[in-house]
C-alpha cells in the first residue's frame, strides 16, 4: 500500500443548501482532506508539507461554465482560509482564471489589493500573457503571467465534469485556462496536448495540489451546465498526483453514468486517454490498481 499514490475523497452529505455549500463545513472538509493526504495530524502541518511560507500560491479555478457550474466561490475562499492558517500570508495568494468577466459572472469579487487576497483574471491590467510562445512538444502557447510571474506554487481547484471532447475535465484540463490558445488543443480528444501542457515546465514546475470540486457533478453533456445530467455529489477530491486525482474523478463520473443508464465514456468513443499519456510522460498514475483511494465522510 505504501508505494501507491494517494487520493482522498471526502463526502459531506447535506453540505449544499439551495445549491450553496456551508463555508464552515467546507473548511472542515479541506482540513480533513489535506491531513489525510499528507499523513499529518494538524492542518498547519499539512499545509507546511505542501507549501513553504514564502510561496506565492495561485489557486486556478474554473469559471467557464458560469455561475451554476463554477468552482464554488465559497470553496475557494475556504481554501484560502485554511492555507492562511497554515502560514501562507493572504497577500501571497491569488484566486485566478482567464478573464475578469468570467470571474464576476461566476460570483467572484475582483480583488487586486496589494496586501490582501487577490482575485483576478489574466486579462487584468498588469497581468496578461507572456509575449513569446513557450514551445514544448506539441504545445506552443503564451502562458498567463499570473502563473509564470506571480505564482511559485499552484493549486488546480477544478470542477469535475464530463467533457464532450476530452471525455473528462478536471484538475489537469483546468490548466487550459492558463494559456492563450486552448482552442488549438481539442483535436483527438485533447490527447496528447493536455498531458503535454501539464508536463510543460511552466505548469509542472509549479503544480503542487489538485482539489476537485465535486459538490455538483456534470456527468454527461459537459462542460456546460445541463441540470438534467448534473447531480449534487457533495464531495471534494484531493491529490498531490494530478493524474491519479483526475483518474479517480473519471471513475466517479463513470459510476454516475452507469447509475443513470448512460454508456461509458469508452463506449461513447471519448475516454480521457490523455491520462495514460500523462503517465507515460511521468506526470502521475493513471492505473487505478496503483492508486490508494481513501474515502471519508465529514
Amino acid at each position: 500500500m505504501a508505494d501507491k499514490t494517494k487520493v482522498i475523497v471526502i463526502h459531506a452529505k447535506g453540505i449544499l443548501s439551495n445549491s450553496k455549500p456551508d463555508p464552515q463545513r467546507l473548511q472542515a472538509i479541506i482540513i480533513k482532506g489535506l491531513t489525510l493526504l499528507t499523513s499529518q495530524e494538524k492542518d498547519k502541518e499539512a499545509v507546511e508539507k505542501i507549501f513553504s511560507p514564502s510561496d506565492r500560491v495561485g489557486i486556478k479555478i474554473n469559471t467557464i461554465a458560469g455561475a451554476r457550474l463554477t468552482t464554488s466561490p465559497e470553496l475557494a475562499l475556504a481554501l484560502t482560509t485554511v492555507l492562511n492558517r497554515g502560514g501562507i500570508p493572504e497577500r501571497n495568494m491569488v484566486i485566478w482564471d482567464r478573464t475578469n468577466r468570467e470571474l464576476k459572472e461566476a460570483g467572484y469579487p475582483l480583488l487586486t489589493s496589494r496586501d490582501k487576497l487577490k482575485i483576478f483574471g489574466t486579462d487584468t491590467s498588469g497581468a496578461g500573457y507572456e509575449s513569446e510562445p513557450y514551445s514544448f512538444r506539441n504545445i506552443g502557447s503564451l502562458f498567463s503571467t499570473i502563473l509564470t510571474n506571480f505564482v511559485t506554487a499552484s493549486i488546480s481547484l477544478a470542477v469535475l465534469k464530463d467533457h464532450g471532447l476530452a471525455g473528462l475535465t478536471a484538475g489537469m484540463k483546468n490548466y487550459f485556462g492558463a494559456i492563450h490558445n486552448p482552442n488549438k488543443y481539442h483535436d483527438n480528444h485533447c490527447n496528447p496536448y493536455l498531458a503535454e501542457l501539464c508536463a510543460s515546465p511552466p505548469i509542472k514546475s509549479k503544480h503542487r495540489l489538485t482539489i476537485l470540486d465535486a459538490l455538483l457533478i456534470q456527468y454527461h453533456k459537459g462542460p456546460s451546465f445541463h441540470p438534467r445530467w448534473a447531480t449534487q455529489y457533495e464531495s471534494l477530491i484531493f491529490g498531490l498526483d494530478p493524474v491519479a486525482t483526475d483518474t479517480v474523478g473519471w471513475q466517479i463520473i463513470e459510476k454516475l453514468r452507469a447509475e443513470k443508464g448512460l454508456p461509458s465514456l469508452k463506449e461513447e468513443g471519448r475516454p480521457p486517454l490523455y491520462l495514460e499519456t500523462a503517465t507515460s510522460l511521468g506526470l502521475g498514475e493513471s492505473n487505478l490498481s496503483r492508486i490508494q483511494i481513501i474515502e471519508e465522510e465529514v
Binding site: I64, G164, N183, K184, H186, D187, P223
Partner: peptide, 24 residues
C-alpha cells in the same frame, strides 16, 4: 442539447454550449 456542429471548414467543430471552435 444546445450543441452545434460548424460547417464552415473541414474541422467540423462539434461544440457544446459556451464552447469555441478551433478558430477561437
Amino acid at each position: 442539447d444546445r450543441e452545434i456542429r460548424c460547417l464552415l471548414c473541414p474541422r467540423y467543430c462539434h461544440l457544446g454550449d459556451k464552447e469555441r471552435g478551433y478558430c477561437g
